[in-house]
Design a protein around this nucleic acid. Structure first.
Length: 563
RNA sequence: GCUCCUGUAGUUCAAUGGAUAGAACACCAGCCUUCUAAGCUGGCUAUGUAGGUUCGAUUCCUACCAGGGGUACCA
């Protein structure tokens, strides 16, 4: 939308002889105009001072005035353009179809988005929650630019964490049996305790360590003696995770497990060893990343067990067989950046059809403020549920002061607060967390966005608006013009978000739009005597609402009618 | 040691190489007989250090300082 507006200005500039690619920017203040052309480069080429060049250019453009551009003025070395607000309004309203903000960049392409990835039998903690929220938003943003998105979730149901939990469960067998009648939440908490119990035991000494490792062996070999306990505990975990996904309005098309890929992973490495893709080194099988300016990594350890690397090879093969993806996005912690570089290089060689399609989207750390260190090993974790509960408590306090109370609002507003806090600052950014305070509920926050929509709804409920009414006004308020320009920017922002797979671009835009609406709300009365102005403003705010709801949906946030 | 990432108001975050470095929280002062005060308006405070490239650097380059990650059988 905004690119069409820019195009008109660029054509205007070309008409008066400006050559080459014309870059436009936005002036810092609305009083200085709506678009700006910086004259540094062309002035240099013409051998003139940029300030003189700008004023001469502005003068030439003055006589060309027509259409959308109502006025042209030079400000120092810049030529600034003022748009005709009424024509702008008509243009914006016409463009606002139901597909406004959507794109076709990924049309006919399948994109896998791998996220959440909690480990069965361990806690679903804050980090998983952030990853789940980010991943769901990235998936929606990619769908919005046209990709056929498949949400996938790769989970470690074998390995040492499972062994530790199993050891703990067998050691606490009576408690485990008693848990079978308890609610799911208790069962999962108990699994966390069992894990911490096993992890502590593991670190006592070599004999204890060996005892736990024996369980690992049994898991890989699918030993009969552990199957009952293993299956029950795994199911508790998965059922619980599923409940979390639903609560957060997310879900997956395919759950992958390490247990289904490790055998094939080992075969692939052994085949690759024969072909020279992998090498033996100190009894282990490695991929020589060092030959590609990276570092070497072990794919099969000296005991012949698959490491995570080899399992991912098996996983990649399943991706190809099941989905034939054009793009595979792994939303995983940024501490694994170097690991992924090596892995992708190996995948490139083993599966040439995946070359250049694997992407690591590094997730930031989520750490607690102060000395509260989070460690699932010591059992000192903040779970996703605890955080959601803490947020809900705070929102309900605010709501108790409010007259308007509706069922279901508390959960929706709480999730909006939580999701927006996680999304507004970029997937890769670390988030420092104070569980009681860090989820903001005022200012630049999720509830602020919902409140904006609620205010719009409140006006729309009272006004009689018909979208067919033509725009019949002489001038607009600066706050109205600012809203129109922001609305026109929306599609370019969703496109950028899709290209960069970055929800924070959408989140920041949402806040700008909401804030601009609130300023408009304070400055302009919608329901007023002048019918033409009233119709225009109703049209304007319903446009704002359309964009707000669309953008909130990209963030995975459900809007509310009233609050 | 090598390598990757990050250093912006008291705090959390913005800013395709461009105009007076923007917001939010906190703090201070105002605004509800007018469409929802979870709001609006005003005030306060910032680019780690030293060089370089450029008409112009928060942005690019070099060195240093500080914090974090990775660096073979964990993920």
């Amino acid at each position: 939308m905004i690119e069409h507006i820019e195009q008109e200005i660029q054509e205007l500039l070309a008409q008066v002889g400006v050559q080459g690619k014309i870059e436009l920017s936005r002036p810092p203040k609305a009083e200085m105009g709506d678009f700006a052309y910086a004259c540094f480069a062309p002035a240099k080429e013409a051998g003139k001072n940029p300030v003189e060049f700008a004023s001469e250019l502005a003068e030439k453009l003055q006589s060309e005035d027509e259409g959308l551009v109502a006025d042209v003025k030079a400000f120092g070395p810049y030529v600034n353009f003022f748009l005709d607000p009424v024509l702008l309004a008509q243009k914006v309203f016409t463009a606002l179809t139901s597909s406004y903000g959507a794109h076709q960049l990924g049309a006919e392409k399948t994109c896998l988005v791998e996220f959440a990835c909690p480990n069965p039998m361990k806690a679903f903690h804050l980090g998983h929650l952030k990853n789940l929220i980010s991943g769901e938003s990235v998936a929606r943003i990619l769908e919005n630019v046209g990709y056929a998105v498949k949400r996938i979730n790769y989970q470690g149901d074998v390995g040492m964490h499972i062994a530790k939990t199993l050891w703990g469960l067998f050691d606490l067998k009576d408690q485990f049996e008693a848990m079978k009648d308890q609610p799911l939440k208790k069962q999962v908490e108990f699994l966390g305790e069992a894990y911490a119990h096993g992890a502590r035991y593991f670190e006592k000494g070599d004999a204890e360590k060996a005892e736990v490792v024996a369980y690992n062996q049994k898991v890989y070999e699918k030993d009969e003696s552990i199957q009952d306990v293993y299956t029950v505990a795994r199911n508790w975990s998965l059922e619980y995770f599923d409940h979390m996904y639903k609560r957060m309005d997310s879900g997956f098309d395919r759950l992958y497990f390490e247990s289904e890929v490790f055998t094939r992973g080992k075969e692939l490495v052994q085949e690759g060893l024969k072909e020279g893709t992998f090498k033996e080194s100190d009894g282990a099988v490695i991929f020589e990343g060092s030959a590609h300016d990276l570092h070497d990594r072990v794919f099969l350890n000296s005991k012949g067990f698959t490491t995570y690397e080899a399992k991912e090879l098996g996983l990649a093969e399943m991706h190809v067989q099941e989905f034939h993806p054009d793009k595979v996005v792994h939303l995983v912690g940024k501490e694994q950046s170097e690991y992924f570089k090596v892995l992708f290089k190996a995948i490139d060689i083993v599966f040439p059809e995946l070359q250049g399609k694997e992407v690591h989207l590094p997730g930031g750390f989520l750490q607690l403020k102060g000395d509260q260190k989070m460690s699932s090993r010591t059992g000192n974790v903040v779970t996703g549920d605890q955080l959601i509960d803490a947020v809900t408590d705070r929102i309900s306090q605010i709501m108790s002061d409010n007259d308007i109370v509706q069922d279901g609002i508390l959960e929706t507003v709480s999730l909006a607060a939580l999701k927006y806090t996680m999304l507004k600052s970029g997937v890769s950014k670390d988030v420092a967390f104070d569980i009681e305070e860090s989820v903001s509920v005022s200012g630049n926050s999720g509830p602020y966005l919902l409140y904006t929509v609620a205010r719009i709804n409140s006006i729309l409920d009272k006004g009689n608006f018909s979208a067919d009414t033509p725009v019949d006004i002489k001038s607009v308020h600066p706050a109205e013009k600012a809203l129109l320009l922001l609305i026109s920017e929306y599609p370019s922002r969703t496109k950028e978000a899709g290209e960069q797979m970055d929800p924070s671009i959408v989140a920041q835009y949402m806040f700008d739009l909401a804030q601009q609406f609130q300023r408009f709300y304070a400055a302009c009365s919608v329901l007023q005597d002048d019918v033409n102005i009233q119709q225009f403003r109703l049209h304007l705010i319903s446009s704002v609402k359309q964009v707000m709801v669309h953008g909130l949906n990209l963030l995975g946030i459900t809007s509310v009618e009233h609050m």
